[in-house]
Amino acid sequence: MSGAGEDGAVDGRERDRDGAGRARNARPRDGLGRPLAHGAEGVARQPEGVVRSPRETVVEAQRLLDAGMPFHAHEVFEDAWKSGPEADAALWRGLAQLAVGLTHAARGNAVGGARLLRRGAGALAGQGNAYGMDVPGLTGWARELAGRVEAGERIDAAAEAPRLAGPV
């Protein structure tokens, strides 16, 4: 049986830790957030804890979605959910779930992708448009995509990227 020892080592290897000593996986990641081998060329990670205005959040998330990087867009939504007003938390959390659902779908995980797309759609249901986003349209997009994912359709994250808002 393997596990972490008192020194934080796993199977004899030191665990990656951030400056505060929290466990962090420092392995490079691909555009869908999958870990790559140490030393491999990866995609730059989104910095954590960035406080953005709602408009900046939408613009940055859209840029990442359009680039086929929904995992990274989810991190932008997660920052908004954790740093913004409590009244907006459900909106940003629902959008983060849509981005993670698209991530799983593009990775070929049909069950997880469909489940998270539907969970995000459920979290957004009943919310009107917010910050220039067509929230009901995003809910419909997520449910339609979930059905296609369950039917076995291969998903390309960039091609399926939703349009969050009108021209910015």
Rank of each mutant, 00 (worst) to 15 (best):
A96R: 12
R148D: 09
P35F: 01
W81R: 14
G49R: 02
L36E: 08
L64E: 08
A157H: 05
D79L: 02
L95A: 09
A161W: 05
V76A: 08
A44V: 11
D30A: 02
A106V: 10
S2V: 13
L117T: 03
R143S: 09
A67D: 14
P85Y: 02
G68C: 06
A99N: 02
N25Q: 11
A130H: 06
E86N: 04
N129V: 04
P47V: 13
E56Q: 15
R34N: 11
G3K: 06
T103C: 01
D79N: 10
A20S: 15
Y131N: 03
R148N: 03
G128W: 01
L102H: 02
R15C: 12
G42H: 04
G132C: 09
G3M: 06
R143V: 11
G101T: 04
A40M: 06
A99D: 07
L116R: 07
P54N: 08
R17P: 04
E41D: 14
G128A: 12
G126C: 11
R154V: 10
T57L: 07
D88K: 05
G112S: 00
A157C: 03
P47M: 07
A61K: 06
R13A: 15
V135H: 07
R115Q: 12
D88V: 01
A165S: 12
G140C: 02
N129S: 14
D11P: 01
R148E: 14
W141F: 11
R29F: 05
E6A: 15
R55F: 14
L138D: 08
A73V: 07
P70Y: 08
G128C: 00
A73I: 05
P28Y: 03
D134S: 11
E56S: 11
E144T: 15
D30L: 08
R163T: 10
A151Q: 07
G132P: 05
D66Q: 15
G152E: 05
A99E: 00
Q62T: 05
